[in-house]
């Protein structure tokens, strides 16, 4: 049997813990919608940066200069609107290898990630 807990959120929202997390995420999203594009708390920001580098990085490269997926550097994203990037993060791109990340980030967090990608993620996490 599997006993140890995953540090990362589960994609299946029917368990107790994930349910709480989902509720928290929805609450956070609601707050973020009210106070448009509120930045996540610093600890969560660090988690998101890590998620982008390590897990988005599986396809886009840890340095975001591209892999099987396209580069996500500020230059590469120069002509992509932030809202489109955020929507791509949340919903994925059907017909391509880009999956929806909705189980792992809120819409507000996707907005924050999109804006950070446009500005450049910096060298943290390397």
């Amino acid at each position: 049997m599997l006993d140890a807990r995953s540090r990362r959120p589960s994609p299946a929202p029917h368990t107790g813990r994930a349910g709480c997390r989902l509720a928290a995420a929805l609450a956070a999203a609601a707050v973020a919608t009210a106070a448009h594009a509120a930045d996540p708390p610093p600890a969560r920001e660090a988690e998101l940066v890590r998620l982008v580098r390590q897990d988005c990085g599986s396809c886009h490269g840890m340095t975001l200069r591209g892999g099987l997926g396209p580069p996500l550097t500020p230059q590469a994203l120069a002509d992509r609107p932030e809202a489109m990037l955020a929507a791509t993060i949340i919903h994925g791109r059907p017909g391509t290898a880009m999956p929806p990340w909705r189980p792992f980030v809120t819409e507000a967090e996707a907005d924050w990630i999109a804006s950070r990608l446009k500005r450049g993620l910096g060298d943290d996490g390397r």
Partner: peptide
């Protein structure tokens, strides 16, 4: 069967 999203190849 429905395919799940793929987060790592």
């Amino acid at each position: 069967g429905e395919k799940l999203p793929v987060y790592k190849m």
